[in-house]
Amino acid sequence: MTDVLENPTSGSPVPSVGEAEGLAEKSESVGRQAWERFRRHKLAIVGTVVLALLAVAFWVGPFFVSYGYEEVNIIDRAQGPSWDHPFGTDDLGRDLLARALRGGQFSLRIAIFTAVLATSIGLVMGAVSGYFAGVVDGGINFIVNVLLVLPALVLLALLGREFGARPNTMAVIIALISWIRAARLVRGQVLSLKEMEYVQAARAAGAGPFRIIRTHLVPNLVGILLVEVTLLAGTAIILESTLSFLSLGVQPPDTTLGTLIAEGKSTLDVRPSRVLIPGGLVTAIILSINFIGDAMRDAVDPKSGIE
């Protein structure tokens, strides 16, 4: 094609073989095109870098900090930032840098675990309910509606108080409540996808329902699922912080960024850094994740301007 355009004098257009070859090059780069679209979002690149740096800091950082996150040191308690304690210390003299790293580690872990888990539940529920319709659909819709009318925070608080002391159970609890949006998204998408002729064709070829869901529906859902994961990660961090702020979340001596903010609030007027630092970390994580999610939405949507 480009040959013809560049050399208008080169006679009649090349027959189908040449054309097919031109197209072939384009098709092998479906992933590359997505990456090109992702790359155009400068903020998403910044977000990715920031998130990567934070993750490295949260997991590797503690090895370079001379204090442990639960190391109590009454003499040095309630200090402001100094060379020895860059983020200061809390009421028990625990190093706040070590605690911020530990908290960040847990918050990020909860965010990712929750997002992946909630999206998976949503995918299964949504796909099954959309594909089979009828009684199954009705049942799942009922669960969704019940979860929608119950105030999520109250539910979280109840469950969190009972089971939320550990980061992993915390993640499961948040996931059990936040899969609804993913399920509804997937269901809607499946309802329209299953009317596609290729799904009919697959049925006519003898494929069973689960094979059709797995090979024809799920790959078409990857786009919205990726976006949903990033959005949910942000939501999970906020929810976890809210719970921890209400001291219903991860229990001491372990900590999360939300817990740190809660602990710092009593001294907000004299030492605002105790709230601002973990608060800033939470903000940085959520903003980064949301920027990445935005860019992914565009990247996986072929309609958002190719070339």
């Binding site: 596609m196 002729e197 290729y198 009919q200 064709a201 697959a202 049925r203 006519a204 070829a205 003898g206 494929a207 069973g208 090979t215 024809h216 790959p219 078409n220």
Partner: peptide, 27 residues
């Protein structure tokens, strides 16, 4: 249904009207 699945595509196959939409664009 199970028995029909074994028959479809194996003993009886169908050719659809619109080849544009009868293939999954992702594969």
């Amino acid at each position: 249904e199970k028995q029909l699945q074994g028959l479809r595509g194996r003993k009886i196959a169908m050719i659809f009207q619109d080849p544009m939409t009868a293939f999954n664009p992702l594969f």
